[in-house]
Computed example of a mutant assay.
Amino acid sequence: MKHILLLALMVTAGAVNAQLYFEDFDSYAVGDYISIEGAPAWAVWTAGNEGGDMDAQITDEAALSGNQSLKIFGNLAGGPMDVILVAGIEGAYEVTFNMLVPAGNSGYYNVQENQIPATAWAFDCFLNGDGSMVYSIDQQEVAYASYTPGEWLKLTHLIDTDSDLMHLYLNDEYVTQLPYDGGQIGGVNFYAFGDGTNLPTYYVDDVLVDLTDPVVDNVKLTTPIDCTFGPNPAQEFVRIQANLDNALVRILGLDGKVVLQERRNDLVSGSEFNLDLDNGIYLLEVTNGINRMTQRLVIQK
C-alpha cells in the first residue's frame, strides 16, 4: 500500500485516532480561500489561481455540523470555481463527504485517478436539479440514483486501487458497485458544474478520508431485476413495476435507437409511462447500471 500525500493529510487533519483526514471547515474564518488556508490537502485546478475566482471560500450560509461549510458555485457553462481535495493514495480507502444542493440548483463532482489534475478521470457524478443523479465513466452513463434537493446528502465511496472496484453508498445505503481502473485515488474535484439547466451551486461539509477493508466484487450477489409491465400490446401508456426504485427505463426501436428514456425512482410501487409511439415492435429496457432487463413491447392502436 502506497501513501503519496498521506503525511500531508495527517498533518492537516491532526491525525486523530485512525482517521487519516477529516475536515468540517469550522476552524477557518468565513471568507477564507480553501486552497490557501487548507493547503496542501486542498488546491485549485490550475496552480496560480489561489485566492481568485477558481478558488472556493468558507461560508456560514449552510452547514451539516458546526456552523460552516465549503461553497461551490458558478455559471451554467461550468466554472470558474474548481477545487480539489488532493489525495494521491493507493490501496483501499473510504472517501466520504456531504453535499447540499439547494432546490433550483444542480451540482457535480468527479474523482481523479492521479494527484496531478486532468491526468485521468475515474468517474463523474451529476446531481441534477430534478433530484436525479447520474454516474458516468468515460462519458458513458453507468449508474443512477436520486437525492432530495435542499437536504444534505452523505456520499460514501469505498475505493480499492488493487481490486479496481468501488462501492457507492448514499446516506449509508448501498447503491451500486462500479469499476475503478485508476492506479491512484488522485483526489476529489469539486467543480462548479451541473445539469446545464439549473445553476451549479452546492455546499460541501464533513469530508473524511480513511483506511477501509479491501473492496471485493459483489456483483454476483446483486439481486437480478424482476420486472413486470402491461398492457402489452399497449396503446397510450404502459405500467411498469420492478424490484428496485432507482433505474433507467428506455424504449428502443428494433434498430437500437432510443425513442423514450426516463430515470425513475418509483418502480417498486409501480409507475405509468405515457407512450407517443407509432404502431410496431419495440424493446423495453430497465437497468440500474449493473443489471439489465429487456423485453419486447408491442404498440397497437
Results as ranks from 00 to 15, higher is better:
Ala39Cys: 03
Gly150Arg: 08
Leu297Thr: 11
Ala192Ile: 02
Leu297His: 09
Ile281Gln: 02
Asn128Arg: 15
Asp24Met: 04
Tyr202Trp: 03
Ser65Asp: 15
Ala15Met: 04
Asp82Trp: 02
Pro224Cys: 01
Asn75Gly: 02
Asp213Val: 13
Leu155Gln: 15
Asn232Tyr: 05
Gly150Phe: 08
Gly256Pro: 01
Asp278Arg: 14
Glu113Arg: 06
Ser35Ala: 12
Thr96Met: 12
Ser136Leu: 04
Trp45Phe: 11
Thr294Arg: 11
Ala103Glu: 09
Asn246Val: 05
Gly194Glu: 04
Ile251Tyr: 02
Ser136Thr: 10
Ala63Gln: 12
Leu127Val: 08
Ile159Gly: 03
Asp213Trp: 05
Asn274Glu: 14
Ile281Ala: 02
Leu64Lys: 11
Gln115Pro: 05
Val175Gln: 15
Leu252Asp: 05
Met293Ile: 04
Tyr135Ser: 10
Val207Trp: 07
Glu50Asn: 06
Glu262Arg: 13
Trp42Leu: 01
Asp26Cys: 09
Tyr174Leu: 13
Phe190Ala: 01
Val86Lys: 10
Asn105Trp: 00
Thr46Asp: 10
Val95Phe: 07
Ile116Phe: 00
Val298Pro: 09
Leu275Gln: 13
Val298Asn: 08
Asp266Cys: 11
Ile89Val: 15
Asp160Lys: 05
Glu50Ala: 06
Val111Lys: 01
Ile116Ser: 00
Tyr108Arg: 00
Ala145Val: 14
Leu260Trp: 03
Pro40Ala: 01
Ser35Asn: 06
